[in-house]
Nucleic acid binder design. Structure first.
Lengths: 194, 194
DNA sequence: CGTAGGCGATCGATCGATCGATTGGATACG
DNA sequence: CGTATCCAATCGATCGATCGATCGCCTACG
């Protein structure tokens, strides 16, 4: 157990993630952000750059982590596209259950970014979704998944799994593992897994 | 074809729906909202009350319309819970495809409301979701739908269908009807329809 | 003449961001 | 060793802009 006290940078990022998730990017002022980080608004600029740069950084690192976790899970999964789908669902649901604020910022604040900053985030998101696209395409090609519109189905299943971030509570009736397995079952059903 | 020119009130509500959907409630200023409504910011107050009242009104009327459409569809559907589920999916998907800005405001700006205003909107949302809850419960009770966690499944399928508002384009490859039927199929699969 | 609808002007508050100044610990040098 | 230099980090003060909202006044019309 390494319970290091958080660095200033971590305190800023944690406060920003929490506030952006709760009140939105435009609903969060830099004074409030500084207060929750334990700094003055002037000092805050030493760590965050501009407010938008901070948001973009948070979104990119969250997406990079998610993609890395998905790649690792796929590397440990077998060849069967259905098993690989299960692995993606588990990673996605776990991430949204365990880091709901991070994922809600990624999913909900894209529109707050200027085109330049948005492009970088969108590229990372597309990279992540390509993992899903490939798995679903492989499954359909091999006749192990049955969907008429793979792109539509991918978006639908992704959003289905993302919804967890908006209701899951770690002190609720269901544990993370149960929720993940339940979504594995829903996703398999939706995609017509043989 | 009744192509009446929009009333001032309609122009305000349409501008607000568009802006709130695109830039968010906190990202939309009074002046911009007035400009797009063809009014000065002072005149705007004659029509909208406060900015928050306007948002709450938009959200309530959108939810009331959705609920009314869902009730009408259920009234015209048969007794089989699977058919009733199909009807709900079609209404939900059509609404999100044809009125993406309205639905995105409802789904995304709840957090911008003060507790008092939020309560009224949440009550309407619960009323709508109860229609889904009942249908799914009936289906499970009769053994025609198979899900381990009906509440979780309801949320998952709802979010799955809501995702349409974030990508559908009326000039794209798929029409509204096709998208709706595709989601009917996905929902049936996810909920294990016999 | 009353009222619905609209306007310009302006309110106090807050916005995101920057300024110059200060601190303290590390590093380089005589 | 002593001290000069540097730089990351922080601060109070304040910038111009914009925020949501309100005011009094004007005009058109039933």
């Amino acid at each position: 157990m390494t319970a290091t006290s958080p660095t200033t940078n971590e305190r800023v990022e944690q406060a920003a993630t929490r506030l952006f998730a709760q009140r939105g990017f435009h609903g969060t002022g830099i004074r409030r952000l500084a207060q929750e980080s334990g700094l003055t608004s002037a000092s805050l600029y030493h760590w965050m750059g501009t407010k938008e740069e901070l948001l973009a950084r948070l979104m990119r690192s969250a997406l990079e982590r998610l993609t890395a976790e998905a790649r690792a899970a796929l590397a440990g999964a077998g060849e069967d596209p259905r098993d690989r789908l299960d692995a993606l669902v588990r990673v996605h649901v776990r991430a949204h259950a365990e880091r709901p604020e991070q994922t809600r910022v990624v999913d909900g604040e894209l529109g707050a970014l200027t085109p330049d900053a948005r492009a970088g985030v969108v590229a990372l998101r597309d990279e992540y979704e390509d993992l899903w696209r490939t798995v679903i395409e492989d499954g359909v090609d091999q006749g192990l998944l049955v969907v008429a519109q793979p792109d539509l189905a991918r978006r639908a299943v992704l959003e289905m799994c993302s919804s967890v971030a908006r209701w899951f509570r770690s002190d609720g009736d269901l544990g993370v593992a149960e929720v993940a397995e339940e979504h594995v079952s829903l996703a398999r059903g939706a995609l017509g897994a043989r």
